[in-house]
Structure formats: C-alpha cells, structure tokens
C-alpha cells in the first residue's frame, strides 16, 4: 500500500466539564488510504463522532485535542487556525447525521453552497452560481435551478441530506468525513444515500471515513473498519477478516446483532448492559463488566491494541478464545 492519505496517531480528546476532565477519545490511531472507505463503528457515546470532529478541531470550546493527524505531511492537530480553515471544506469535508439541524434553517441552500465555494475557489459570482447548480445536479436533486433558492425546511429528509453532500463536495475534497449520514433517514432512502456516497467517491476519487453504529452499512460500503468502545479503538482490520473472525469480544457481540438480509436494521442491543459513561470508565478493559469472556486480568490490566494476524489488530486479552467462539458459532 502506498503512503496513507491521512495518518492518525495517538489522537486524544478531553473535555472539561463540571470541574473535572473526561477523556472522550483515548489514544486513537488509524490510517486512511487513497480511495479507501474506512468504517468507524461503535455504540452511541463510544467516541466515534468526537474522533471525527477532533480531526478538524470542530469540538465545542473547552475541549483539548492531543496527538497527531498527519495530512499530506502536516499535522492537523497542531496547524495554525488560518491554515486549518483552508483544509476544512477544501481538501477535507464533513457531513452530519441530521440534515435538518446541520443545514442553517434561515439561509437558502444557494447561500450555503456558495459561501463554501467563495472560501475555497477563485470562482466569480456567476461561476459560483453555475457551480452550485452543477453540484445539486451531481447529487441527484431534480429541478436544481429552482431548488437552489429554497430553504432547508422546504426539502424532504433525503433531499436535505443530498443538499448537505452537495455542500460538502463544493470544492472537490479528497477526504469526506461522514458522521452517521444515513441514521436519520428512512430505510429506503438510507440505501440511496449510501449508493450516492460510494458513487461520488469513485467519480471524484475521494476517500471516506464513515462513522456508523450499523454494521450492515459497514459490510455494504467499507473496505476496512475500526471498532470503538469507550473512547478507544478495540479492533481494527479489513472488513472481511473482522466479520469472518472477530478478535475482540465486543466485536463478536456486535456481529451477533447484525440483521439477516431482508430484516430491518435495529440498534445494537444484543450485548447485555449499557456502555459506561465517560466519567466512569472501568479499569482494565473497559468492556469487562459486559463481557462473557472476562477474567481477573481483564478487570486489572488494560489490553494493548496489537496485531493478531497481519493487518488485523485487537485489544483483547482473550482474542484467541473469541476467535474460536466465532468459528464455533
């Protein structure tokens, strides 16, 4: 594999809240290759969205980000604000879960596309208008010329998500960060939007980091995946390898909840218990209270994320037992 497009090392995000500090993202490392779709999977609160936002330093004020995110030889975490602004929405764009809340309700879609073009291209007024129309065409919004002057509330849910994608693509990014882009949509529309993202990825030669809690989505769209739990990556590898032979008890539990073809996707609920709050992460392996494989060592020593087979990493004391269990099932 050639040098990765984005290389994240030891990314950590801390929040100060109520006089104490909590760690939402803890020592996360991963690479994104050219043209690759990386899935970032986990339950609500696992830190996957915060990881995504940390990359572009889009966290609320009071958050601290550490570690490295190397983008074309430069560290996004340490980059001066003015320089980072050129990367944001330029080479790296982001789309959000709720198109209703992520589009500004009081501005026409045209303004929201053109302001991005204005920030990143040398196009003049007429050029921006023409390009905005092209972008709506590109994401499959019919009657683009008229719809440009409409407001977000005049769009349906799926059309809103398409509009948001159009905005994110305005300056032809090389990397798209997608934060649960289909979760808020109806099932039929979900598939359309996923297809659209994959199609655009191929046409524009982008890479994608796709955050989702839906393993079905990962199976359909990603080449590699990283599973997050309580702010850390617990397993990472090729989608085929991880699905075939999970090496972390948590991933095994998640896979148990993947719906069979034809049934509706449901939330990940097959694992007993709920994920820990950030202020009360258990010592040792954070998953141990919910884990069927847990032993004393899991309650005391935090497992390192280390290779189990080439390119397949897991942070589990009992990854061999987990692998056997998955084969037996």
């Amino acid at each position: 594999m050639s040098a990765p497009l984005l290389s994240v090392r030891g990314l950590t995000a801390r929040f100060r809240a109520g006089g104490r500090e909590v760690t939402a993202v803890d020592d996360v490392s991963f690479d994104v290759g050219e043209g690759e779709v990386l899935g970032l999977v986990g339950e609500s609160g696992s830190g996957k969205s915060v990881t995504l936002r940390s990359l572009l330093r889009l966290l609320p004020s009071g958050a601290r980000v550490e570690g490295q995110a190397l983008w074309q030889g430069r560290d996004l975490v340490a980059m001066p604000d003015a320089r980072l602004r050129r990367v944001r929405g330029g080479a790296i764009s982001m789309i959000f879960q709720e198109p209703m809340t992520a589009l500004n309700p009081v501005l026409p879609v045209r303004v929201q596309i053109e302001e991005s073009l204005r920030a990143h291209t040398a196009l003049d007024r007429a050029g921006r208008r023409a390009r905005a129309r092209e972008l709506l065409d590109l994401v499959g919004i019919p009657d683009a010329a008229r719809r440009l002057d409409e407001y977000p509330h005049q769009f349906s849910g799926g059309m809103r998500q398409r509009a948001m994608i159009a905005i994110a693509l305005a300056s032809e990014p090389r990397l798209l960060l997608a934060d649960e882009p289909t979760t808020a949509l109806d099932v039929t529309i979900q598939d359309q939007i996923l297809k659209l993202i994959l199609d655009l990825k191929d046409r524009l030669g982008m890479s994608v980091v796709l955050v989702t809690h839906d393993l079905g989505v990962v199976a359909e769209t990603c080449s590699r995946m990283a599973v997050m739990y309580a702010g850390r990556i617990v397993e990472q590898g090729g989608v085929r390898e991880v699905f075939a032979s999970p090496r972390h008890a948590y991933t095994l539990g998640l896979l148990g909840s993947v719906p069979r073809a034809g049934t509706e996707r449901s939330a990940l609920r097959s694992i007993e218990g709920t994920p820990p709050g950030l202020a009360a992460i258990p010592p040792g392996c954070a998953f141990n209270p919910r884990c069927a494989f847990a032993t004393t060592v899991c309650r005391e020593v935090r497992p390192d994320l280390s290779p189990r087979t080439p390119g397949h990493l897991a942070a589990c004391h009992h990854s061999d037992r987990v692998a056997q269990a998955s084969l037996a099932a």
Binding site: R86, S93, L103, N104, A168
Partner: peptide
C-alpha cells in the same frame, strides 16, 4: 454549538462570517 454552526465551521469559513451569518 448547534450542528449547523459546526457544519459552517467545517466548511472552512472565517470565524467572523460564522458568527455573523450563522
């Protein structure tokens, strides 16, 4: 901290533009 403000920031707009327009 609304999503649309974060989205506007993610587009690489100037801080002053985000504050005034969004």
């Amino acid at each position: 901290d609304a999503d649309y403000v974060t989205f506007a920031r993610s587009k690489g707009l100037r801080g002053s533009l985000v504050l005034l327009r969004h």
